[in-house]
Design a protein around this nucleic acid. Structure first.
Length: 558
RNA sequence: GGCCCCAUAGUCUAGCGGUUAGGACGUCGGCCUCUCACGCCGAAAACGCGGGUUCAAGUCCCGCUGGGGUCACCA
C-alpha cells in the first residue's frame, strides 16, 4: 500500500523510471475532430510532448474520428494547424505517417471489428440488440425509481446461438463489454497513486456501435496497444473509464500502459473549461494576438512548477527540468489576465523588427489587408481613415463601456436581459449550424435561420450583432464583416456583449472573466476604461429591474 | 443521487514534520515620468473544519465540509 502513493520511487512517470523500464517511451495526443481546436488538447499535448522529449521518446498524433456523425475533415485540419501553430511537433501522425499508420481511426475500422469479435469469442464481450428507444425507456424507469441509470445487462445472458441467429437475420446490434460483476479494478495513476474502483459500479460499455465503428474505449485500447503506447497521459475526466480499459487489456492478454490523468482546466467558477464561460478555441488565442510560445508557457504553469520561482521559460527549458513529480493534481483555473501578462513579457523581450514580423504574420498581412480594402474603401476618402475604420478588424476583445453603447444595442421593445440571452444563443446556434467554412453565406444563413427560430425580425437582430462585433452602429455589410473578423473573435465578442448586457440587467450576477488585451476605442470617444471596469461601471447605474432570484451564472440554460 | 478525483490568499503555485508559510497574476499605495504603459519599491490577502499520530502537523492518518468529474451506440 505505502508503495502505491504518488511519491513512490516506483512511479513510472517520475525521474528516470520510464527509461529504466526498458520499454521505449511512446505517448500520444488523440484529439477528436468534432469541433474547434481546443485549448485543453494543447494542454494535454504539451505534457505528452514534454514527457516524450524528456525521455527520448516518441510523440504521436492520432485522430479519433470514430464518431461518424460529428467528425469532420475541416475540424481535423484545424486541429492539426492549431497544434502546429502552438509549436508541438509530432513524430508520427496522419500527415507525416509513421510505422503504425494509418493514424486516423476511421481508417482502421477492420482492426476494431476483429478485436471486438475476438472478445465475443472469449466471452469478454457480447452482442446487445437493445434499441436506442428501449434504452431510453429503461433509463427513464430507473430514474423514476430513484436509481442510477445504468444499462441493465439485459442481453448479457442471451444464448450464443440465439444471438448468432439474430445477427444473421440482420438485426442491428452493438457489442458490449462484459464487465466483471464483482471484485474491483485497481490501477496506479501517475499523479494520484493507486485508484480502486468497484467493478459493479461500471456498466457494460458499448465497444462497437451498430454502425460498425468502435467507441473510444475499444479504439483507444486497441490502438494504444498496436502503436506501442507506453504511457497514457490524458485528462482527468477519463479516470472513471480507466477500469474498462484495464479490463480490455486483460481480456486481450495485453500489458496495459501506465496511466496518468492531468487535472482539468477550469472556468473561473471552477467547472470544467467550456466555451460558454471561457474562450476555448486555440484559434481565438491566435486571433486575439497571443504568442504561441506564451500560451504554451502559460499552459505549462497550469500544474507544473518549474522551480526556483521561475515562471517564464521556453519549451526547451521545460523539457530539461521536467518531471511529473513537479506537477500538482490540483484543479487550475485558466486565468486570462495572467496569460496576458505573460504574453506581455514575451512581447517586450522581442526586438522591434521581430515584433513587426509577428504583426505581419498575424493580421497585418497583405492578404488580410486586401480583404479589408474591399469593404472599407467606399467608406474612406483619405488614407488616414483606414486605421480608424479598420480598428475592430485588428483587435481582440472590444470594450462596450462607451456611454449608451449597449443601450443602442437593445432593440426597441426588447430588454437587455432578453437581448443578452439572444446574443448568447446566437453563438450556440452558429456553432450548431456552421459546420464548415466561416463564410459570408454560411453566416447569413445562420443568422437568418436564427431569427426564424426565435421569432425576431432580421432588422431587430442585425444591429445588436453589429454593435457587439464591431463596437459601432455603422459598419460594412454585416456578414462580410463577421466573416473578416473571424469565427472565434466574432463569437467571443457576442458572448462578451451578452455578458455585459446581462450584468447590467441583473446587478447580482457575478461578473465573469474580464476581457483581456486591449479594447478598441471608438474614434472620438473617451479613452477606454480598463476592460474589467466595464461591468462594475454598469453596476453603478441604477437599474430598474430588480434582482429577482440571484443568477448563479449569466448563461441562459438551454 | 451512486462512484471517483481534488483541497495553501480572488487566481496560478512553492512547501514533501520544526519556515517570520516563499514567489507570480490581480488588487491597493508609492517611486520614476509631460501622460499612459513599462520598470522599481511597498501593502493587504492563504494553510476549509474536526479528530487523531508525534516532543512538534500546511506537511502523515481518519472523518466531515466544499468544489469538480463521471454515470451515451460523444470523445
Amino acid at each position: 500500500m505505502s508503495t502505491d502513493g504518488r511519491h513512490s520511487t516506483d512511479n513510472p512517470f517520475f525521474g528516470d523510471n520510464p527509461q529504466r523500464a526498458g520499454r521505449p517511451v511512446r505517448v500520444r495526443i488523440a484529439p477528436s475532430p468534432t469541433g474547434d481546436p481546443h485549448v485543453g488538447t494543447a494542454y494535454i499535448a504539451l505534457f505528452n510532448y514534454v514527457f516524450a522529449r524528456k525521455h527520448a521518446g516518441t510523440f504521436i498524433l492520432r485522430i479519433e474520428d470514430t464518431d461518424q456523425t460529428r467528425s469532420t475533415r475541416a475540424s481535423e485540419d484545424a486541429i492539426l494547424r492549431a497544434l502546429s501553430w502552438v509549436g508541438l511537433q509530432w513524430d508520427e501522425g496522419p500527415d507525416v505517417g509513421g510505422p503504425c499508420a494509418p493514424y486516423r481511426q476511421s481508417e482502421r475500422t477492420e482492426q476494431y471489428k476483429q478485436h471486438a469479435m475476438a472478445l465475443v469469442e472469449r466471452g469478454a464481450a457480447y452482442p446487445c440488440f437493445a434499441t436506442a428507444d428501449e434504452l431510453e425507456a429503461m433509463r427513464k424507469e430507473q430514474i423514476a425509481a430513484g436509481k442510477t441509470p445504468q444499462y441493465d445487462r439485459r442481453y448479457r445472458s442471451l444464448p450464443k446461438d440465439e444471438a448468432k441467429a439474430r445477427i444473421e437475420r440482420g438485426d442491428p446490434y452493438v457489442i458490449r463489454l462484459a464487465m466483471p460483476l464483482s471484485g474491483q479494478t485497481r490501477f496506479v495513476d501517475g499523479l494520484r497513486g493507486e485508484i480502486v474502483i468497484e467493478n459493479a459500479t461500471i456498466d457494460d460499455q458499448v465497444l462497437l456501435k451498430s454502425d460498425g465503428f468502435p467507441t473510444y474505449h475499444l479504439a483507444n485500447v486497441v490502438d494504444d496497444h498496436m502503436m506501442g503506447i507506453s504511457h497514457v497521459i490524458r485528462a482527468e475526466e477519463w479516470i472513471i473509464s480507466t477500469p474498462k480499459h484495464i479490463q480490455l487489456y486483460q481480456a486481450f492478454g495485453w500489458e496495459p500502459p501506465q496511466f496518468l490523468h492531468m487535472p482539468l482546466l477550469r472556468n473561473p467558477d471552477k467547472s470544467k473549461i467550456s466555451k460558454r464561460k471561457n474562450p476555448v478555441s486555440l484559434d481565438y488565442y491566435r486571433d486575439a494576438g497571443y504568442f504561441p510560445e506564451a500560451l504554451l508557457n502559460f499552459l505549462a504553469l497550469m500544474g507544473f512548477a518549474f522551480g526556483g520561482d521561475r515562471e517564464k521559460f521556453t519549451l526547451r527549458e521545460m523539457i530539461e527540468v521536467f518531471d511529473f513529480a513537479k506537477v500538482s493534481p490540483g484543479e487550475p483555473v485558466f486565468d486570462l489576465q495572467k496569460l496576458s501578462w505573460l504574453n506581455g513579457l514575451y512581447l517586450r523581450e522581442m526586438s522591434d523588427a521581430e515584433l513587426v514580423e509577428r504583426l505581419r504574420a498575424w493580421r497585418l498581412s497583405d492578404a488580410y489587408l486586401l480583404s479589408l480594402m474591399k469593404m472599407l474603401r467606399e467608406r474612406m476618402e483619405r488614407m488616414d481613415q483606414f486605421i480608424p475604420a479598420a480598428s475592430y478588424f485588428l483587435t481582440g476583445d472590444l470594450d462596450y463601456s462607451a456611454p449608451g453603447l449597449l443601450d443602442q444595442l437593445v432593440p426597441k421593445g426588447r430588454d437587455r436581459s432578453t437581448t443578452g440571452q439572444v446574443l448568447s444563443q446566437l453563438c450556440d446556434h452558429m456553432e450548431e449550424t456552421i459546420r464548415g467554412e466561416w463564410t459570408h453565406d454560411a453566416i447569413e444563413a445562420a443568422c437568418r435561420s436564427f431569427c426564424e427560430k426565435i421569432g425576431w425580425k432580421t432588422k431587430e437582430l442585425f444591429m445588436p450583432i453589429r454593435i457587439a462585433v464591431t463596437g459601432r452602429t455603422a459598419s460594412p455589410g454585416l456578414f462580410d464583416t463577421l466573416s473578416a473578423v473571424g469565427k472565434d473573435l466574432t463569437r467571443r465578442r457576442l458572448r462578451q456583449a451578452a455578458q455585459a448586457l446581462l450584468s447590467m440587467a441583473t446587478p447580482a450576477a457575478p461578473s465573469v472573466q474580464p476581457a483581456s488585451g486591449t479594447a478598441a476605442p471608438a474614434p472620438g470617444k473617451a479613452p477606454p476604461a480598463p476592460a474589467g471596469k466595464a461591468a462594475s461601471a454598469a453596476l453603478a447605474k441604477p437599474v430598474a429591474a430588480p434582482a429577482a432570484g440571484r443568477a448563479e451564472n449569466t448563461e441562459p440554460k438551454a
